[in-house]
Amino acid sequence: MLEVKNLNVSYGDVQVLWDVNFSVAEGEFVVLVGANGAGKSTMMKAVSSLVSPMSGEISFNGRRIDTLPAHSIIGLGLAHVPEGRQLFPEMTVKENLEMGALSPAAKLTRKETYQKALSLFPRLRERERQMAGTLSGGEQQMCAIARGLMARPKMMLFDEPSLGLSPVLTQEVFRLVQKIHEEGMTILMVEQNVKQTLGICDRAYVLENGRILMQGKGKDLLEDQKVKEAFLGI
């Protein structure tokens, strides 16, 4: 469904991604792990066209998307839940969610999708009219995920959804992501909670200093000596 080929990305003179190749098949749950500064968010931003690659190719459902402007990506069915939530702080929860459903297709079913999203996140229902900027960290993450769902995407990108959350809330967020996946969503998630995410995903890639170091089934990587040393401290 998503295919990234020989991708090189740089910010000015500094190259951040080196010849990255990976793919996500329809219905898969793929995780991208890596240390701080490895280039995970840059990878996600490249997929969403927020940064444009120096070279390489990104395609979604067989269609090349790296040459498209950022605002046309979501309409293709690819929603990005960015690192650090990136909500609209002075808009209500409801308005934030509405912003997720701007494409003509998503707009048609906006009311139903909205109710569906709220049933997945009951806490948001109580806070519909609250400014997103005043939500707690956990609620903000729920709001960001719900906003992504509002687009009725075929595939979702999650960039560190557990960032800044307590262990309990992290569990909760992972459970929700799994639930969304079980309902048929294709998922690419960036995480630093390596142990937990490798346990729930289908496949994973390890990114180190902008290069794909290894890939494999989540469970296999968990057993890998290098992964253990680098991420699990064993």
Binding site: L50, H71, I73, I74, A79, H80, F88, P89, S103, R147
Partner: peptide, 11 residues
């Protein structure tokens, strides 16, 4: 309020 997020939403 957040230009980058707005672009992600299709704005």
């Amino acid at each position: 309020q957040n230009k980058e997020a707005a672009r992600l939403m299709g704005v």
